[in-house]
Write a protein that binds this DNA or RNA. Structure first.
Lengths: 209, 209
DNA sequence: GTCTATAACGTGATAGAC
DNA sequence: GTCTATCACGTTATAGAC
């Protein structure tokens, strides 16, 4: 009886190989700078197969973009809307899950920020992201805590910006940061690990009434 | 006696027109996505003139990149190394001068973050930025205040990251932010103006001993 | 489904007239 | 210095054999 094997590149279907390669290359170089040949080479397949499976570079890119956005948003929405946790633990979980995601996949933040600039409306027309975030359990709890005088009067939008800034920015600026602070990769990783616990503490400090 | 006129596009030399157009287009679209024809059109000149004055797209880009980095760093270095101001007022001035710079030129942060990724070493080999920042008056004052127990024990690198994150990130994420929070441009601008005074207050709160 | 060969097109760069 | 016309090349996409 054959043992179920973990997927390895050789086991993937051609279509899956192309998709995985496209994700890697697009994430690293962005749409304009990647050539379909890069993707074919990364996937170890013939260039013609890319068009056979995905019709065009643009179609393939849209698939990766949507998939990446969904991946990035799903974690968020889950945590933001968990009715069972309170504000403080939500902040902890946002920091942890996002930093984990970006340690695993450090190209994502800059990829999203860069590629969205060109096509803001395309994506958000399909994703009702504004409503989802502004009406999330997190935001409701935040406003309630404010109304009850349990936290400071920092405007909700600034709270959100500050939280996301402290989490995401050091990843978007990683190459520069490493240079400026002369950090080795392990040192950098350690720092980001530390921030998983530090950011919630800092945010709590800012929210003290 | 002719009155000295403020520069307007018509008054600029052809070379200056191309340079200004290149700055605009490169900042907005990045190197890979801009076509030399875009720049020529933006400048209102013939495509051949671009190569006549700048030899190649790449040479022109390097000029813009260096110029932009210098523009971005100069403000910083001036404030960071002003021996006459104390830590608290330096933090205020960093927030104000950077936010002003990015309100005026909102494409700069994402441009730098994206384009540096491809060529980190190229730029920093020419700019001794690590030494300049780590040995700045700001950093010395920070460490001294810490040794004297006047501020909290937040590690200097985290202090720097948090400060820059809160300042820069909302500009890098502006398109997304506007969508998510359903902000009009004036509302967005107002928010960034507010942050010029709020960020120093928040940072001070974090640094309370 | 997968390959090789090539078409079709876009883009950076230049020649040469003015 | 500035223009038009064109080249040279790289890249996306497809035709057609296997």
């Amino acid at each position: 009886m054959p043992v179920k094997k973990i997927d390895s590149p050789q086991d993937l279907s051609t279509e899956a190989k192309i998709r995985a390669a496209a994700r890697t290359v697009f994430h690293k170089k962005g749409f304009a700078a990647t050539r379909t040949r890069d993707i074919a080479e990364e996937a170890g397949i013939n260039l013609a197969l890319l068009n056979y499976y995905f019709r065009s570079k643009e179609k393939l890119f849209q698939i990766i973009m949507m998939e990446t956005m969904k991946h990035f948003m799903n974690g968020m929405i889950g945590v933001f809307n968990d009715e069972k946790t309170n504000l403080e633990s939500k902040i902890q979980r946002v920091a942890i899950s996002y930093i984990d995601l970006m340690i695993k996949d450090p190209e994502i933040p800059l990829f999203i920020l860069s590629e969205i600039r060109a096509n803001v409306d395309d994506f958000f027309s399909q994703m009702p992201i504004a409503k989802v975030i502004l009406n999330s359990a997190l935001m409701r709890q935040y406003k309630k805590a404010q109304a009850d005088g349990e936290i400071s009067n920092m405007e909700p939008i600034h709270f959100l910006i500050n939280l996301m800034s402290m989490i995401v920015f050091p990843f978007a600026a990683a190459p520069m940061l490493k240079k400026v602070a002369s950090l080795t990769d392990p040192q950098y990783q350690k720092m980001m690990e530390d921030r998983k616990v530090l950011i919630p503490i800092w945010i709590n400090t800012l929210l003290k009434p």
